[in-house]
């Protein structure tokens, strides 16, 4: 019924596929084999050494800084506590944006999924909104919500909302009709069908949406901070850049990458707790 929306969902899901399909480090086996974690650490150290060696010799230190400076910067920011204030601001905007966007997207997805009239009515408008690069809304959010954290939350939320919506909607549409018929034959009311059959069944799709959306929440928050803010990692990376402080830029990027990995891990953990039935089948 909604080929356009479904098509978009498919691409959205695929975005995540290559990342999540990277095999995890093999567990240490008894015997003389070197565990993968050691190889991975070795690669990281090698890259850092090459970087350190190249800096100032092959490439100007101004452009790529060097690991020691970056490390020193991270150490200083950690010691005087300034980095935590920025991390806090970014995390707050990311978290709030993620929660608001997820709840909104899931509710919208379920509602449109179970209401053919509404979904057909809104289809062209949702497609237009979805095609719009959401970051272009940033100036509008600054006008509406001011320079404070609210405009960052709004940007993160709107990015998350569409991703979660598309996945939830597709998930609701994918629910096995036999399960719905079965419940209705057992005298389930419409509300019971939605709560006990449709929503649990669509849950894995919702989680797929949440997993894809998590990095986008961070993107939204950081981008909002880069545009207009006086706090947050986005502000800090922007500020460092404008001061030609390459070490500072790298230091912030390192922190953002750590945050992103941590947040993704969090979503994975929540999913594996709530989808025990799916895990036992593996």
């Amino acid at each position: 019924m909604q080929p356009d929306i479904n098509a978009d969902r498919a691409t959205a899901v695929n975005v995540d596929a290559p990342l999540s399909s990277i095999p995890q480090a093999a567990p240490l086996k008894s015997g003389g084999r070197v565990p993968m974690a050691l190889w991975q650490a070795a690669l990281g150290i090698a890259v850092l050494l090459v970087w350190q060696g190249a800096s100032g010799r092959l490439v100007d230190n101004f452009f790529i800084s060097n690991p020691l400076d970056v490390g020193a910067r991270l150490y200083r920011w950690t010691m005087d506590g300034t980095i935590f204030q920025h991390i806090g601001a970014t995390l707050y905007a990311t978290g709030m944006g993620f929660v608001i966007g997820s709840v909104g997207g899931a509710v919208l997805g379920i509602w449109l999924g179970v209401s053919p009239f509404a979904s057909r009515l809104l289809n062209p408008y949702l497609n237009a909104l979805n095609a719009l690069p959401k970051v272009a809304l940033a100036p509008l959010f600054v006008l509406w919500f001011g320079l404070g954290i609210e405009s960052k939350i709004a940007l993160a939320a709107v990015l998350v909302l569409f991703l979660v919506f598309l996945n939830t909607f597709a998930g609701v549409r994918e629910v096995d009709q036999d399960l719905i018929d079965g419940a209705r034959l057992m005298r389930a009311t419409r509300a019971q069908v939605i709560i006990k059959v449709i929503i649990p069944s669509a849950m894995s799709w919702v989680f797929a949406g949440l997993k894809i959306a998590m990095p986008y929440a961070l993107i939204g928050a950081v981008l909002g901070e880069m545009i207009a803010a006086n706090r947050g990692l986005g502000y800090l990376v922007q500020f460092s850049g404008s001061q030609f402080d390459t070490a500072g830029v790298f230091a912030v990027l390192f922190v953002i990458a750590l945050l992103a990995v941590g947040l993704n891990h969090l979503v994975d953990m929540v999913q594996s707790r709530t989808e025990r039935w799916r895990i036992v089948s593996r």
């Binding site: 096995d176 036999d178 399960l179 079965g182 209705r184 034959l185 649990p200 069944s201 989808e275 039935w277």
Partner: peptide, 20 residues
Amino acid sequence: GINTDVGYMTQKDSLLPWRS
């Protein structure tokens, strides 16, 4: 419309996979 006086056991089992 749906006849709720019948219990229907379909050929395909229609257990809800997320329930014990």
